[in-house]
Amino acid sequence: MNKKNGTANHRIPDFSLSPRIDKVGVEERVSRFQTRSIKTSAKLQGLKMVLNMIDLTTLEGKDTPGKVRQMCYKAQHLHDYHPGLPSVAAVCVYPTMVGVAKKGVEGSGVKVASVSTAFPSGQAPLKIKLADTKFAVSEGADEIDMVISRGKFLRGEYNYVFDEIAAIKEVCGDARLKVILETGELVTLDNVRRASDIAMYAGADFIKTSTGKIQPAATMQVTYTMLEAIRDFMDETGIKVGMKPAGGISNSKLALHNLVMVKEVLGGEWLNNDWFRFGASSLANDVLMQIMKAETGNYQSSDYFSID
């Protein structure tokens, strides 16, 4: 992972001039990723890669330390019946659960991501968002998943959104910052592209589609638009940014199509969990069931896998 100096040395573009997106063209391109046939050993390798890219997530009002501990255990023991499976990339929790999660994954290499900045709405003053983030970092979060102020963005206050992301980045310290655009509320692909550009120039280490609370979430069209923004940003500044589609990716096939898309838009360098993640809660079990199907030849039942 290259430690970067940020975009301080780069000219900040006028975000109102971000490229416009050809929606029909995107749909056409995306539909082609879905026709790729991935079978046998390639499928198995892809599925294991997907497992290793998952941010196992619980973001509910009813979360308890017990629930978080259980998830942390699952993150490291996805299906002990089948030895040799990778662990997931990270567990993703609310700031108050970071301490519990940190203890839960100790020594396993699984990272702890914390949502912050008044997740999921982001409707709080900057002061509170900063305090929220500082708290999560001080509890030991390795990664911060912040939400942008969509209301401000839609009103055209791009500088506010930019400054806010930059301010949060500053208090993140060594924690990597994922910026959630909540694309379901941005409505158009033009907006998705513009928000991606703002987030990356403001210092995002990752851009992430959604909170998982709003539908539609990580559609392939949205993810594709963001991947293209990452590629253009890389060309412009030489800085690599990661991608995390979150919400709505609940089956293996869709996950594999996403990997194909990443490979073909950004290249193989992005195909590891330093640069690509899936935010999902129920994807892991489906992938596990597919792996077991591939290994045993028998269709599987959720009765024999851990509860999400």
Binding site: G297, N298, Y299, Q300, S301, S302, D303, Y304
Partner: peptide, 8 residues
């Protein structure tokens, strides 16, 4: 065969 061996 796939029906009979189906775990679900």
């Amino acid at each position: 065969p796939p029906l009979a061996s189906h775990m679900d």
